[in-house]
């Protein structure tokens, strides 16, 4: 056996690894959250639209909830906004906003201009609820079932992704 074949074999193996990695590329866009299958973290935070009131996550138990992390400095959030309005129209879930690292006045202005898809918007100025949700950017979306368990997480929503991936998760169990 020719020992000089070893480099070629190692190289071949690497090409295979790269190849598999390339093939998996599209799936990687959905970063798996460590929280899938676990109870959604509880939070109790100031309400953006009703000064003085608090948004309590416990209040949404028993319904399908889409927790949407957003901020006015986030470009993708603006692109995502019409999809959220559309989802609200469909009425399959309620959307709870988590306003991430933002200024209240900017956020109110944004909703006044673009429309408000949210059942309630919690202000997470300290970023603590965001840490509990494992958030590190915006937008992020968590789908929480009526039992309060996170069943899916994704980045920015597109109408397609909502229809083909997330909606079946809801309908599969409500049918």
């Amino acid at each position: 056996m020719n020992r000089f074949i070893i480099p070629l074999l190692v190289f071949g193996l690497l090409v295979v690894v790269f190849g598999i990695s390339l093939k998996h590329a599209p799936e990687k866009q959905v970063v798996k959250s460590a929280l899938i299958g676990k109870p959604a973290p509880e939070f109790s935070l100031p309400d953006l639209l009703q000064p003085g009131a608090t948004v309590n996550s416990a209040a949404f138990k028993g319904r399908w909830v889409l927790v949407n992390v957003w901020a006015t400095w986030c470009v993708e959030c603006r692109a995502e906004h019409p999809t959220l309005l559309d989802i609200k129209q469909q009425g399959k879930v309620i959307i709870v906003g988590l306003n991430y690292q933002d200024k209240d006045a900017d956020a109110r202005q944004w909703l006044a201009e673009l429309g408000n898809p949210y059942e309630a918007v919690a202000v997470d100025r300290e970023g603590r609820a965001s840490i509990d949700y494992g958030v590190y950017g915006a937008p992020e979306n968590f789908l929480v079932n009526p039992a309060g368990v996170i069943v899916h997480k994704t980045w920015g929503l597109t109408p397609d992704y909502w229809r083909t991936t997330m909606l079946p998760l809801i309908e599969g169990t409500t049918k």
């Binding site: 070629l8 190289f11 071949g12 090409v15 790269f18 190849g19 990695s21 390339l22 998996h24 590329a25 599209p26 990687k28 866009q29």
Partner: peptide, 23 residues
């Protein structure tokens, strides 16, 4: 690997080129 999602041909091309020259 995100960047390939938009254009997987780039990744495949690179891999083939590497396989041909280095291989």
């Amino acid at each position: 690997v995100h960047s390939f999602a938009s254009d997987p041909t780039r990744g495949i091309f690179i891999l083939s080129f590497l396989a041909l020259t280095i291989g």
